[in-house]
Amino acid sequence: MGTKVARKWLWWILAIHLVVLAAELVAPHDFARQVRTLSFAPPTPPRWIDAEGRFHWRPFVYALQRDPRNPREFIDTTNERHPIRFWVPSEPRQMGPMVLKYRLFGTSSPTGIHLLGTDRYGRDMFSRILYGARLSLFAGALAGTLAVVLGLIAGTLCVTWGGWVDAFLMRMVELTISLPWLYLLIGVRAFLPLSMDPVPVFVLTIALVGTLGWAVPARLVRGVLKTAREQDYVQAARGFGASEAHLLFKHLLPQTRDTLLTQWALLVPKCVMAEVTLSFFGLGVQEPFPSLGSLISVLTEAHGAMTRVWMFWPAVALGLAILSYHLLAEALQQHRDV
């Protein structure tokens, strides 16, 4: 246990984030490109064995065509293999400061490679998940961190100052949790420009979700610190003349670590979903830009989407990300003297 596990999960999370960061390179398609003839097309998995049962070293895909018996569905066109190639040239596009002229992989198939199928507009789900995860995971992790840090500060203030500061901040917690922020947000939206670029939206999302999320962590920290302060060894240290600041940083705050890490890992998915709420009020990302939350919420808005299993992939992707955040939190907790 301990540091080794933590490091393992750190690498894994780093890898996920790097992949989504390089979405422009990894994604085989533009996230907004609509191919209307390929609405709700099923995934085209990479294959090694062709329709005749022959094995090929280079993976390939089959092109899709409408099923002549049921024009709503698609079937493979098995008379031609389209090998998957790596580092394929593509139209130039901007990735940060660089101009990319290649994609990590692609095929010559006329219907393209769709690892996870396509959505209503025939947009590639795999590409959209990558782009969406980039926005959502970073926004979620940052907003979660912001909320936890604010909560830590508020909770610490409650305990170190006590008295009316404590009472005031705790009533603020109750206010924060009960207030209909929604109305305020709709109000704020009316003063913002009609259409907003993704970058300010990203910052706004983090700021809003982060600042509104401080309440629960604050109460948790306060509770833990209140008890911790009275522990025998802390009292003893105080008796030996340790300064309050020393006590706080050396003995008290470390005790909140486990709870806060747990809370953080729980906040990340909430932030991802909160972004959907923001989008609903015109404050989050808007079509055609994807976010994990909006990709998932498609499931609840159309009865039909539930019957297309590949529409569940965004939820699976988010689930995996959450899993790894929790494992990371666990690993960081366990890495103590055991």
Binding site: L266, M273, I296, T300, L318, G319, L320, H326
Partner: peptide, 9 residues
């Protein structure tokens, strides 16, 4: 299970 529940609306 927790991760799944958190990812499902």
């Amino acid at each position: 299970a927790v991760a799944a529940l958190l990812a499902i609306p």
